[in-house]
Design a protein around this nucleic acid. Structure first.
Length: 154
DNA sequence: GCCAACGTTGGC
DNA sequence: GCCAACGTTGGC
């Protein structure tokens, strides 16, 4: 049985349209620098898991599309790149600290705004909506997944 | 730009 | 291990 996730991305960096334009509509999810989020990738994410692609830190935050996990985890290449914003000088190829996983577009949807999510009783339990949540990757229950898809119209 | 909330760092 | 200081996230 697949798991479900919500993954935040700043559209200025990687938007749903960037994912749609990528080769095979697939991009490596790089730049995660939080251990809890990393551990989700390492321990719990599996190919074919469902992903709610969420736009954050932008004029219209919310779910912008559906994606899925493809392939397995690998060292996040940006941690080794001194020119990257995500460079981590404390990490090494011998003992990589950060991981990436490939995400493939399933379909772009209408934008489901954060404000609408907050008003929806059936979404009230979503981890991303909990006070103080800052995780860039959060688990989504099967019930929440179904409710979001229903609200997105399919 | 503001600021609440949280995670990390580092001195002790 | 404690905890203050600092940095980051992210909505508004």
């Amino acid at each position: 049985m697949p798991n479900y996730w919500l993954m935040k991305s700043e559209p200025d960096e990687v938007s749903i349209d960037d994912l749609a334009a990528a080769a095979r509509q697939t991009l490596p999810w790089t730049g995660v620098r939080n251990y809890q989020a990393r551990n989700f990738m390492r321990d719990a994410m599996r190919p074919d898991d469902g992903v709610l692609f969420y736009h954050s830190s932008c004029p219209q935050p919310g779910v912008a599309g559906i994606a899925r996990i493809v392939g397995g985890v690998a060292p996040d290449e940006t941690q080794f790149d001194p020119g990257s914003l995500y460079h981590d000088p404390a990490s090494s190829r011998a003992a990589p600290r950060w991981l990436q996983i490939d995400v493939q577009l399933v379909r772009k949807t209408r934008l489901l705004p954060l404000a609408e999510m907050r008003e929806a009783p059936e979404l009230a339990s979503m981890r991303v909506l909990q006070r103080g949540n800052r995780l860039s990757i959060t688990p989504v229950t099967a019930q929440e997944w179904a409710a979001v898809l229903k609200r997105l119209g399919g």
